[in-house]
């Protein structure tokens, strides 16, 4: 990665506070942790779901099951952008029939990823309810999809990109804006 100039939107401490608040909101919306399942979207949604689960564990003392969804095979742009190089793992720890699934992702943008995630979830069963929690909502929706729990709203000018870094994959926690580099 080139060292393009970037603006930090959330520092490591701010990410921690934001995730904590998201976890509290999820518990509140679910009225506890009963029948709650967190499902992170590959890749960074999975790590954020893990953080949320850790906060819930500290707060409520319960282990909320965490799953992972890779939506690559449910994308609507295979023919226009070609196959993604690497398909990640999909893993749901428990049946999702009748539970409250909270889909967790790092950035909500066009909504196409969430559309794909909803399609994929439906292939595993019929949850009683599905909610959406995102660390950053950057606007720019192309589908009628809205989040239930938002870490931070960020207005992103055209031509800029939101990058979410997590310790597990990137060595640090940080949300930043940077200029889009033509690839």
């Amino acid at each position: 990665m080139a060292n393009a100039p970037h603006t930090i939107v959330l520092s490591a401490r701010a990410v921690e506070r934001t995730v904590t608040r998201m976890a509290d909101e999820i518990i509140e919306r679910n009225d506890g942790t009963e029948r709650l399942v967190l499902v992170g979207i590959q890749r960074r949604g999975v790590q954020i779901a893990g953080r949320i689960a850790a906060v819930i564990k500290a707060r409520e003392g319960t282990d909320v099951p965490i799953g992972a969804l890779d939506i690559t095979l449910y994308r609507d742009d295979l023919q226009t952008v070609g196959p993604r190089p690497v398909v990640g793992k999909t893993h749901l720890p428990v049946g999702i029939e009748g539970v409250h699934v909270v889909i967790v992702d790092d950035v909500l943008f066009t909504g196409r990823t969430i559309r794909a995630a909803l399609d994929e979830l439906a292939d595993f069963g019929r949850p009683a309810k599905v909610s959406l929690a995102v660390l950053v909502d950057r606007g720019g929706r192309e589908l009628p999809i809205q989040p239930d729990v938002v870490g931070k709203h960020v207005d992103v000018p055209a031509g800029e990109r939101v990058d979410v870094a997590v310790v597990e994959l990137d060595g640090k926690d940080e949300v930043s804006l940077s200029a889009m580099v033509a690839s």
């Binding site: 890779d70 449910y74 295979l78 196959p83 398909v87 793992k89 999909t90 069963g125």
Partner: peptide, 23 residues
């Protein structure tokens, strides 16, 4: 290696109740 790396996660689809993706 790319084919093998791609095949690895695809094994999971055959373990599902609905063994199908819309790709």
């Amino acid at each position: 290696s790319l084919v093998l790396d791609t095949a690895e996660p695809l094994k999971e689809i055959s373990e599902r109740t609905i063994k199908k993706v819309p790709t």
